[in-house]
Lab assay of single mutants.
Amino acid sequence: VFVDDHLLEKVLELNAKGEKRLIKTWSRRSTIVPEMVGHTIAVYNGKQHVPVYITENMVGHKLGEFAP
Rank of each mutant, 00 (worst) to 15 (best):
V1E: 15
V1C: 15
F2H: 13
F2V: 08
V3I: 11
V3S: 02
V3D: 08
V3H: 03
D4H: 03
D4N: 04
D4L: 00
D4W: 01
D4Y: 01
D4C: 09
D5R: 15
D5I: 15
D5Y: 15
D5M: 15
D5Q: 15
H6R: 10
H6A: 14
L7W: 01
L8E: 02
L8P: 01
L8N: 02
L8K: 04
E9H: 11
E9C: 15
E9P: 01
E9M: 15
E9Q: 14
K10Y: 14
K10I: 15
K10G: 05
V11L: 06
L12H: 11
L12S: 06
L12E: 06
L12K: 12
E13R: 07
E13K: 08
E13P: 00
E13H: 07
L14C: 08
L14H: 05
L14G: 06
L14D: 02
L14N: 04
L14Y: 05
N15L: 04
N15Q: 04
N15C: 03
N15A: 05
A16N: 10
A16D: 06
A16C: 13
K17D: 05
K17L: 13
K17G: 07
K17T: 12
G18C: 11
G18T: 04
G18R: 08
E19C: 10
K20P: 02
K20A: 05
K20G: 03
K20E: 03
K20T: 07
R21S: 11
L22Q: 08
L22K: 07
L22M: 12
L22D: 05
I23N: 02
I23K: 02
I23M: 04
I23S: 02
I23A: 01
K24A: 07
K24H: 12
T25G: 02
T25A: 03
T25H: 02
T25F: 01
W26G: 13
W26C: 15
W26T: 13
S27P: 02
S27N: 03
S27Y: 07
S27E: 06
R28F: 04
R28V: 05
R29I: 15
R29Y: 12
R29D: 11
R29M: 12
S30M: 03
S30W: 01
S30T: 05
T31G: 11
T31V: 12
I32T: 04
I32Q: 00
V33S: 05
P34C: 15
P34E: 11
E35K: 04
M36H: 02
M36W: 01
M36A: 02
V37S: 06
V37D: 04
V37K: 11
V37R: 10
V37H: 05
G38N: 09
H39L: 04
T40Q: 14
T40E: 08
T40I: 10
I41K: 00
A42D: 06
V43K: 00
V43G: 00
Y44S: 07
Y44W: 12
N45Y: 08
N45Q: 08
N45S: 10
K47I: 11
K47V: 12
K47Y: 11
K47L: 11
K47F: 12
K47P: 06
Q48W: 11
Q48T: 13
Q48C: 15
H49W: 13
H49S: 05
H49I: 03
H49R: 03
H49A: 05
V50P: 04
V50F: 10
V50A: 09
V50Q: 14
P51L: 11
P51A: 12
P51H: 05
P51S: 12
V52H: 03
V52F: 06
V52W: 03
V52N: 03
Y53S: 11
Y53V: 10
Y53G: 09
Y53L: 13
I54A: 02
I54V: 14
I54Q: 00
I54C: 14
T55A: 13
T55E: 13
T55F: 10
E56Q: 10
E56V: 12
N57V: 12
N57R: 09
N57C: 14
N57I: 07
N57E: 14
N57S: 13
N57H: 11
N57Q: 10
M58R: 06
M58S: 06
M58P: 00
V59E: 06
V59I: 15
V59A: 06
G60V: 02
G60E: 06
G60Q: 08
H61T: 09
H61P: 00
H61R: 14
H61Y: 12
H61K: 13
K62E: 13
K62D: 03
K62N: 07
L63G: 00
L63N: 01
L63I: 05
L63Q: 00
G64I: 05
G64N: 06
E65H: 14
E65S: 10
E65N: 08
F66E: 04
F66K: 03
A67R: 03
A67S: 14
A67H: 04
P68H: 07
P68R: 10
P68E: 09
P68K: 11
P68Y: 08
P68V: 10
